[in-house]
Design a protein around this nucleic acid. Structure first.
Length: 544
DNA sequence: ATCGCAAACGATCTTAAAGGGAACTTTAA
């Protein structure tokens, strides 16, 4: 289990304890353990109780629970809490807009035990009869519940990567005569998946323990992996022809339309690569097949992992990251990057320990020191400034002027209409100190929709004011969405692929950003952080 | 349940906005 998953169990524990009216300080300890553990880099499952207790927020009890988790993937106290809470109530714990107080009321007072029942109650107008509830809350709950239901059958691609590898391995090993290959949306690097799809050369006779096959016909079998992930196996004779491989992998209507006229080579080519060779068109990698235009497609110009030279938008112990400036810098050096842009949270982000002006200046002095010590590696002084409710940034101009670059992001007051959102965004983009617009929609995939954004107007404004747009590489965000990269490129805007790292491992999220960028067809030359240190420095000096 | 300051014990991250109902509660970042 990853630290994030272990932390998730403590967060769940805290939520359940709250529902059952446990001691609020005990609850806080579990919630706190979640906050601290999820960002740790050391692999917790390998550590001793003494080593575990050295971490902040981990005492004797939590350490014991971590040991228990490493053996059983859960802990007894959590299982007990789960067993006395209906599954539907546990699901509602994760829905934004439903906090513990409301949930206790729904469950204990109204007898509502699932998201579906709550949605029904809202639609029947049954909530507003109760004190503290009015039409607006009911309406917002309906939106939140409908969003939840629309997403509940979907999966994050990044969380299924190990599952994909396991399926390939286990089916392959148990059935040595069968060839198996990934296809479909997962092969195309679609960030959110409904199911996993594979091509196999024949029926799976030795079924892995984690797989249950449900239906089969001549063309395919359908099953469930680990009880909840839908899996399809399409039968094809190997070696695969281009037609079978390409058609099963799929892509946009435009892509299918594009390859259709090449019927004969499609039918006869022995592989995807040969097909493209035979029609005299550059190979279109699977992740790019959701694009809409292929006439001038040139894969050699697409962004690649190794093109990224600098790590932009990162946090440190000054705000809500567990690693110091030096630790972050050293990890960047180790990974072969030339520079690090530290953009901690600004002062309004109190929950994330946002920096007061004094602490900003303290950080600048430390960065100056480290830049002498670590040269030629460079740390740039930045800030992830909150975009306040009126669209202004979080410090007076003389402080903003002291940063090498300012990233502007919305973190607060996310519940707003498009008009308000655009007012804040456009104000921030027009601010002369804003160089990069951070995670433009504020979405968290499968969990938070984000505020409504008129992407075209926003991109146009960024073009007008020479503002770079972030593609936040955190796999929960991937925001700017890859679908908008094409328009941004046409407007001549640069995209920064930023990990938004809150620990050392977070830096490696860049790979998810590069994937999303390739999916959107981002050309290397339109990416900000392919610039080497000298070039990046020159870019900074071209202040608006 | 944990931490920090102190050696047994007290305190536990902030803040603003929004909704509902006329002072406060709830939620989320």
């Amino acid at each position: 289990m990853t630290n994030k998953q272990i932390a998730g169990l403590f967060s769940e524990m805290a939520g359940l304890m709250e529902l059952h009216g446990e001691n609020e300080f005990k609850i806080k300890s579990y919630a706190n353990a979640y906050l601290n553990i999820r960002k740790l880099d050391a692999e917790l499952e390998l550590l001793s109780p003494e080593e575990l207790q050295a971490f902040k927020g981990v005492g004797k009890t939590i350490a014991e629970k971590i040991i228990e988790i490493s053996q059983k993937a859960s802990f007894a106290a959590l299982e007990e809490m789960r067993s006395k809470t209906p599954e539907g109530v546990r699901q509602m714990l994760a829905i934004k807009g439903i906090g513990p107080k409301k949930l206790i009321f729904f469950w204990k007072e109204l007898g509502i035990e699932s998201p579906g029942e709550l949605l029904y109650a809202c639609k029947e107008n049954r909530l507003i009869a109760h004190k503290g509830f009015g039409p607006k809350i009911q309406e917002d709950l309906i939106k939140a519940l409908e969003f939840y239901q629309s997403q509940s059958h979907l999966f994050h691609h990044y969380l299924l990567e190990t599952e994909i590898q396991e399926i390939l391995q286990e089916v392959g090993q148990l059935n040595p005569n069968i060839q198996i290959e990934l296809t479909g949306t997962a092969k195309r690097w679609v960030p959110i998946l409904e199911s996993l799809e594979f091509i196999v050369s024949g029926p799976i006779t030795n079924v892995p323990e984690n797989l249950s096959l449900q239906t089969s016909d001549i063309e395919k079998s359908k099953g469930l992996w680990k009880g909840n992930i839908p899996v399809y196996f399409f039968y094809q004779s190997f070696p695969l022809s281009a037609k079978n491989s390409l058609m099963l992998t799929g892509g946009s209507e435009e892509f299918i339309h594009f390859i259709k006229p090449y019927d004969r080579p499609l039918e006869n080519s022995a592989s995807e690569e040969l097909f493209f060779k035979e029609i005299g068109h550059p190979f279109v990698p699977a992740e790019c097949r959701d694009l809409k235009e292929f006439e001038n497609f040139d894969p050699s110009k697409l962004i690649r992992d190794e093109d990224i030279k600098g790590v932009v938008h990162n946090h440190s112990t000054y705000s809500d990251c567990v690693c110091s400036l030096k630790e972050m810098a050293k990890e960047c050096i180790r990974l072969g990057y030339e520079y690090l842009v530290i953009s901690d949270h600004s002062k309004t982000a109190g929950y994330a320990n946002g920096l007061s002006i004094e602490r900003v200046e303290m950080q600048w002095r430390e960065i100056d020191q480290l830049n002498i010590e670590l040269a030629p590696f460079k740390i740039y002084k930045s800030i992830e400034s909150d975009i306040l409710s009126d669209g202004s940034l979080d410090y007076p101009d003389e402080i903003l002027a002291g940063f090498d670059l300012v990233i502007a992001s919305i973190h607060s007051n996310l519940k707003m209409n498009e008009e308000k959102a655009m007012m804040r965004l456009l104000n921030a983009v027009a601010n002369p100190y804003t160089r990069i617009l951070g995670h433009p929609t504020g979405r968290l995939l499968l969990s938070r929709q984000g505020y409504p954004v008129d992407h075209m107007r926003l991109i146009d404004a960024c073009a007008d004011h020479d503002v770079v747009i972030e593609l936040n590489a955190n796999p929960m965000r991937l925001d700017l969405d890859w679908n908008w990269i094409d328009y941004a490129q046409k407007k001549g805007i640069k995209i920064a692929i930023n990990p938004d790292a809150h620990n050392l491992t977070g830096i490696r999220d860049i790979k998810y950003g590069v994937r999303a960028a390739r999916k959107g067809g981002l050309l290397r030359n339109n990416c900000l952080n392919i610039l080497n240190n000298a070039e990046f420095n020159a870019w900074i000096l071209t202040k608006k």
